[in-house]
Design a protein around this nucleic acid. Structure first.
Length: 459
RNA sequence: GCCGGGGUCGCCUAGCCUGGUCCAGGGCGACGGGUUGCUAACCCGUUGGCCGAGGAGGCCGCCCGGGUUCAAAUCCCGGCCCCGGCGCCA
């Protein structure tokens, strides 16, 4: 049974609690309970009216011609009554469905309470961040309560945004001329880096049994509605004009929808996918933030982990997915911390979310580069993805789905540019990427050398 | 894009012309039970969703959405998808 409906009927207090910690309305739960009760009552009424009608209709089929007229007349009367009741049911049902679907996923007990970023709880730190003297105080604030080894330096690395423009590694000015703000032409060294990062993530995940997938980059509205909240539509989704198609914001969406309407056998679960795709995002709510560089852009490439599993296993998978992402970042050598996102900052679809935040030495703070969510049955209910003992056997319930970034190229590139930059401007390429670069004569192997922008600027 | 064929309860398929006997028949698979020294074969039952107490009973369900009718898998309209042929294209 869908967990929201289950709690609604069996443990409404849990739902109220979940709403409360999210800072959402508790009355919504009461309203849902009332609507559900009314819906069930109407449902029973209509079922019995329909039964009467069915009995009558089969009587007509067998009746001698002389009696038919009267029976048909009675059936017509019954039909009018039924039609009226059905209209009432339809409106109650639509409202019930609307209210039920507007309830966000039920928050897991281990999620910290809180409303804002400050309430997120760091759960562990990794690496030895390089901290510019001017950021020291801010840094210590961010690692408070944890023992983190760090190195204080006297020079401040150049921020990635200035760095890429100064050294001809990206051209956002010309991109804005042809496509607008938050687009980029990525050049030479960064192109190699992007491709190597994708290969690195796919290599790592395929060894762990993930099936590689390049999904459709566009989705119809119906499947998309199964995987994101209504608010997300306006905020991040691009629509193809004149068609029922939307550009994906992440491979999570087409992969989640991939098994829509299916009942998966227990023994084929978990299904592990590693998707690669471009991601298109409007970034509607982000005016003025990260306007320069390639940290927050309308289009980037991402390798995404996605899991379909049974409800018993999903919390264990949640931990594994974040560990996989950590392994990738450890391999690269980028210092990070993992934070448990507080209830008020959780997205609608997630029951719990970890972010992996990389250390950005030029900015003096940890910033999100990976997001890892257990969405439990929020998506699978909407997409009707269930599981059963065997294919063809009756469904036992809805599967759980989870998703986690493996590598989002632009974010990881910015982290590399800031963490491995030397005072002379040279950026050291993480050793793990070497084997993916080695096959190309022109690709940088150990260093990305600073150089003046190739073409003169301005138009 | 055009012409033709088609979408049926996990898979395959019957029914659709000629609306009611279809609360959709059969085969395969799966699950439970029986028979058998074991396996195989065979026999019986179960195998979509919802309401209800996981009872009795009932409602809905034949790609989706409308319509005609007392009654629609079956007739009509609109949409989506799949297959074949032609066109176009990397």
């Amino acid at each position: 049974m869908w967990s929201i409906l289950y709690y609604l009927r069996n443990d409404p207090e849990k739902l109220r609690w979940s709403q409360r910690v999210r800072g959402e309305s508790e009355e919504l739960v009461d309203r849902a309970i009332a609507l559900d009760a009314e819906w069930r009552k109407l449902r029973a009424e209509i079922d019995s009216l329909r039964h009467e009608r069915n009995v009558l209709a089969s009587k007509i089929a067998r009746a001698p011609p002389a009696e038919k007229g009267a029976l048909v007349e009675a059936a017509r009367a019954l039909d009018r009554k039924l039609k009226e009741a059905e209209e009432r049911l339809a409106s109650v049902e639509a409202e019930r469905e609307r209210v039920l679907r507007s309830i966000p996923n039920v928050v897991h007990e281990s999620v910290p309470p809180g409303r804002s970023e400050e309430d997120n709880v760091p759960v562990r730190f990794w690496g030895r961040p390089r901290v510019w003297r001017g950021h020291l105080e801010a840094f210590l604030q961010q690692v408070k309560g944890h023992s983190v080894e760090y190195e204080v330096v006297d020079w401040r690395p150049m921020g990635h945004a200035d760095y890429v423009e100064a050294h001809g590694l990206a051209d956002t000015e010309r991109a804005s001329k042809v496509a607008g703000a938050r687009f980029y032409y990525m050049l030479d060294g960064l192109v190699w880096l992007e491709l190597a990062l994708v290969m690195y993530a796919l290599d790592h995940l395929s060894k762990k049994g993930f099936q590689l997938v390049i999904p459709p980059y566009m989705l119809r509205r119906a499947p998309l509605e199964g995987v994101i909240s209504f608010a997300d539509f306006e905020e991040m989704i691009y629509k193809i004009e004149g068609e029922d198609l939307y550009l994906i914001a992440t491979a999570e969406h087409p992969i989640a929808a991939m098994h829509a309407g299916e009942t998966l056998a227990r023994d084929e679960l978990p299904l592990l996918y590693a998707g690669v795709s471009p991601c298109f995002r409007k970034e509607a709510g982000a005016h003025g933030r990260d306007t320069k560089g390639i940290f927050r852009v309308h289009q980037f490439t991402k390798v995404e982990q996605f899991v379909f599993c049974t409800p018993e296993e999903s919390w264990e998978w949640h931990e594994r997915l974040i560990r996989n992402a950590e392994e990738l970042y450890q391999g690269l050598g980028i210092p990070y911390r993992v934070v448990n996102i507080c209830a008020g900052e959780l997205g609608v679809v997630a029951a719990k979310k970890y972010d992996l935040e990389a250390w950005f030495p030029a900015q003096g703070r940890y910033r999100e580069v990976v997001s890892c969510s257990n969405t439990t049955d929020y998506q699978s209910y909407r997409l009707n993805i269930r599981y059963a003992k065997a294919r063809g056997a009756p469904a036992e319930g809805y599967v759980h789905t989870l998703n986690s970034t493996a590598i989002a190229t632009t974010r990881t590139i910015t982290a590399i540019l800031e963490n491995f930059q030397r005072p002379d401007g040279v950026v050291e390429v993480p050793k793990v990427l070497r084997k993916y670069l080695e096959v190309f004569d022109e690709a940088p192997k150990d260093y990305i050398e600073p150089k003046p922008a190739k073409a003169p600027k301005g138009s």
